[in-house]
Design a protein around this nucleic acid. Structure first.
Length: 213
DNA sequence: CAGTCGATTCACT
DNA sequence: GTGAATCGACTGA
C-alpha cells in the first residue's frame, strides 16, 4: 500500500530559501500546469540549480536584463526563457528578492493529462520521453514566454502550481555536474535527480557550436 | 550594428 | 556520433 501523494500547494516560504536547498527538495513534487485545453501533471525527477550573480552558469551572472528580470523578483514565480531559436525552458525562482536564484526543471514523469502532452510531443517514442529534458518538459506542459513571471504559489487552477507530492528521501537523491553548461559554470555538482528513474535525461557536457562560414 | 552563440532536440549515418 | 535547425539576447566596437 502506497500513500497517496500530498496535494497541498507549496508555499512561497518553500521557495524563499537558498536555491541549493530548494533544488533537491523539489524532487518528487508535483507540477500542475493548467492549459486552456486542460491540466497536465508532472512528478519532478530532475532539476538544476542556478545561483544568480555568483554563478557563471546562470543567466543572471551578468546582472538583470529584460529576459532574466523575473529571476530577480520574488520567489515562487516562473522564469521561462527561449533558446536555440525554437525551445523554451522553465525555472522556479528561489531565494529572496534580488538574489536571482532559479531551479531549471529538467525532467519529470507525466502523471496526469498525458493525452495532451502526447499531442504536443509527437516525436516522443514512449511516455517516459514526454518530459525527458528541459525543452521537452516545457513543450509537454505547453509552456512559453507568455508564462514568464507567473506565480506558481497561486490557488489550484492557476496556470502553474506546485504541490507537495512525495518528497524523495535523501538516500535516493543523486547529484552531478550540470548538463550543457559552459565554462566555469560546469564545475558545480548542482544537477539533482532521482536515482534510477527512467525519465531522467542523459548527461551531456557542454559542446561549443562549430564555426560556420 | 554585425557577429556570436545558447541551461537543446531531432533526423540521419 | 555528427550536423542542422532557427532566432533573439547579449557583446563589444
Amino acid at each position: 500500500m502506497i500513500a497517496a501523494p500530498d496535494r497541498t500547494p507549496l508555499t512561497r516560504d518553500f521557495f524563499d530559501r537558498p536555491v541549493l536547498d530548494v533544488a533537491p527538495d523539489l524532487l518528487g513534487r508535483l507540477l500542475v500546469r493548467t492549459t486552456p485545453a486542460g491540466p497536465v501533471e508532472l512528478r519532478l525527477t530532475e532539476v538544476e540549480a542556478y545561483d544568480g550573480a555568483n554563478d557563471p552558469g546562470s543567466h543572471a551572472y551578468r546582472g538583470r536584463t529584460a529576459r532574466n528580470g523575473v529571476m530577480f523578483g520574488p520567489p515562487g514565480h516562473v522564469y521561462v526563457y527561449f533558446t536555440y531559436g525554437m525551445w523554451h525552458c522553465m525555472n522556479l525562482v528561489c531565494g529572496p528578492v534580488g538574489r536571482a536564484g532559479g531551479v531549471l526543471l529538467r525532467a519529470g514523469e507525466v502523471t496526469a493529462g498525458a493525452d495532451g502532452a502526447r499531442r504536443r510531443r509527437l516525436s516522443a517514442r514512449n511516455d517516459r520521453e514526454l518530459a525527458k529534458g528541459p525543452a521537452r518538459l516545457a513543450t509537454a506542459l505547453d509552456v512559453d514566454r507568455s508564462l514568464d513571471g507567473t506565480d506558481a504559489c497561486g490557488p489550484a487552477g492557476s496556470p502553474v502550481t506546485v504541490l507537495s507530492g512525495t518528497p524523495v528521501v535523501p538516500d535516493q537523491v543523486r547529484s552531478g555536474p550540470r548538463t550543457g553548461v559552459s565554462g566555469d559554470g560546469g564545475v558545480h555538482p548542482w544537477r539533482f535527480w532521482i536515482a534510477n528513474d527512467p525519465t531522467v535525461s542523459p548527461y551531456r557536457p557542454h559542446a561549443p557550436r562549430r564555426r560556420s562560414t
